[in-house]
Design a protein around this nucleic acid. Structure first.
Lengths: 124, 124
DNA sequence: GACATTCATGCAAATTCTTGCATACAGAGA
DNA sequence: TCTCTGTATGCAAGAATTTGCATGAATGTC
């Protein structure tokens, strides 16, 4: 049997995933790192709202951020959460990992110069 | 990308797991079916409270019930939830599946006659 | 230094969830 | 039928979450 304190930790993690917006954010981030403005354009939610959900994920150690100029890129760091996403949403197809979709409404560096970014991701 | 409506469904499922008591119930039920009074003794929570959590799981199609005399036995029916539990809590060891622990405070049929029940589970 | 851009934070109202308790229901036995 | 046992349901108070909005901090540009 799993101990009671462990169960609390696991429940906390499940609770983080039990939110449509956070789940969608993680579904995006497990494919490739993205900046806040990209997530904003992708999800169609106000930026402070996105940031707030990202903070919860960050404080739980599920995602981490890295600044690049004015932009802050978030990426998935928790391998167990990645495994849960795989189990629930299905695995990420090999091609999807480097497939960054340039959004019409997004003006982030990745969308502005998608090709160069693609190369950086592949060689990383 | 997973569609938005799917994400809502998945988030709902994760939300169900994001609760210590429900998670513990599922951790028990994935090992073997148990009656309500057994869960009550095991979790140390009032019976109406257990029933209420079981209802949520039942209405979501995660568990199902079957009556045996006065007792109602619940078992896990959602294979995807089982997979999530495996991914998060680790797989159930082969021996655990038939290992029903007779509880001192529990007077359910399974606890009253643990040996006979064991045999039934193995041959089932 | 002034200003624009990108993101983070703080706060509050509305909603939802949690939890406990009283009570209703159903089946079994006398 | 009456009662007892095991379980389900309804309801309400309190707690936590969600969501929107205003504003603040940090960084790059002119």
């Amino acid at each position: 049997m799993t101990t009671s304190s462990d169960l609390n930790d696991f429940a906390e993690r499940f609770k983080l995933l039990g939110h449509p917006v956070r789940l969608q954010i993680l579904d995006v981030l497990r494919r490739s790192p993205e900046c806040v403005c990209h997530l904003e354009a992708l999800l169609g939610k106000p930026q402070p709202y996105i940031s707030q959900q990202l903070r919860l994920l960050r404080e739980a150690g599920v995602v981490a951020d890295s600044k690049e100029g004015l932009n802050v890129f978030y990426h998935l760091v928790d391998s167990q959460v990645a495994a849960l996403l795989n189990a629930a949403l299905g695995p990420v197809l090999p091609g999807e990992r480097t497939l960054h979709q340039a959004l019409p409404g997004c003006i982030c560096p990745k969308c502005a110069a998608p090709l160069r970014q693609e190369i950086r991701l592949v060689t990383a």
